[in-house]
Design a protein around this nucleic acid. Sequence first.
DNA 1: CACGGCCCTG
DNA 2: CAGGGCCGTG
Length: 530
Amino acid sequence: MSFWSKGMCSSSDVCLAGCTAEHLPPSHPDPPPSNLGGFYTSHKDGKNIKGLIHRIENTALGLSCSVPVEYNLSTGSTRTPLSPAFSSHYDWSLNSGRQAKRARVENIIKGITCTDVAPNQHEETGCVREGEERVEVSALHQRHSCSESESSPGKIHQEWKKATPGHLGSKPDRAKLMADILKYELTRAVSRSVDSIFKSMPLVQTPTEMENSETTLPPHLAECMEDKLRCGTAEVLLPDVQTEALSLVVQKPELERPRNFILQSTSAAPLTPKSPIFFSSEPEQASEQDNITHHRRHSFKCLPGGCSEGGEPRLDTYWNLVKVKSKVTSRCVRSPHTHTVPVDQVILESLQLPHVKLEPDYTHESVDFFLNGVFQECLTTNHLKKAKLMFFYTRYPSSVVLRMCFHDVQFTRCITSQLIKWFSNFREFYYIQMEKFARSALLEGAPDVRDLTVSRESELFRSLNMHYNKANDFQVPDRFLEVAEVTLREFYIAISMGKDRDPSWKKTIYKVICKLDSDVPPEFKSHHFG
DNA sequence: CACGGCCCTG
DNA sequence: CAGGGCCGTG
């Protein structure tokens, strides 16, 4: 666990934050809980996990609600009990055609999910990715922590407690539990994937209509997808809590160090995002966004029209995506009592909250590629932009992290290499800038390394920001500034000590920075978050 | 040998 | 930013 932890939220939270109550349809029984995280109960035999889990029950509306779902781990099937509240909302019995179609899609997705399964990992439902297994183990810890702060620990919580290193149960028990949970998670993921497709279908349509309008995007879905695009992958409005890591390495006991040397640009106006939104107002937006919205623009019938701000969207009208964008933007901007937290959920999930990471997310991307039926086979300019923003969070992403972050991409060796190459290039620029400014500071005669700071007003930051965040529409996390400051000082010290005479002198610095990526700031070692 | 990372060049 | 070379690692 590291500094990403704070301010994290599950995809459900993100959805909640992104789609405010105004999207609630009148029939919705209750406002969804804000502390979504999931709690579980398990049957004694461990085979069936009957849990009250949080599903995004209506992707189209961007709602997140608790729905009781039974999972049969033996068959891998799931079903949603017809509780009064939800049977009134979703009359499944009227959708036999949908169910048939669901079955087909479910098979397809299961096929996708099980592509790289080791033979011995097949067990009952069992297709479990090795990479995810490790992650899932960590997820148990995370869930354990969540459960601590939430009110509904179930039996499985107790089981997980036993499974954590601090509460080691017998090995067979743990292995069995792990296997069950893995199967359960996979089943859930498959189920959700299927659900996301069907929930995105206009509810009022008959199966025949659905067949004929598979590419029609209902207005609320369009909006939610746009919300996801902006708030799910860029920034999320969260309650006013501390979400940024405090100073990592360098404590700043002296509040007023008068000299911030040459890196402080006194005349420059502070760099603040024009809006807390990705791709917000750039003229290039259209072309940049083409990569993402091309498919929708092409195939979704986004007719002019709309839905009222506070009411239920009219199902007979369709949002023009441009309208949706401006609406979403204005809503995000106008929230005065929340501060924006840079949470590229994908990045954060991948880096810090493995249990969240495994939550299927309902960003435009996942919906998009499921609707497309294929993963993207090449990286787009949008991926590049995303990678650059990722760099603010991690300088050395592992291939696992990359896979998680670019989940809409069909990963091949070529893709992986290209992404790695990108980050290599990013680092190259980063370190060049650091060295340049460190040497500059040295030449200027900076007397104390502590006078070297990196703030949002500093020239160094502006240079970096210009490179990775050219549109300046992304709120760079404070953590990045801290890492940059450490990097700068490392360069400064090394150069001042003459270590740069060693041809490989930079490698020491690289290691330091690489370690910072995985280090846990002190304040997160002793505090639970959530 | 594959892979990841750095360096250099264009 | 891509491509190629080089090197270290497993």
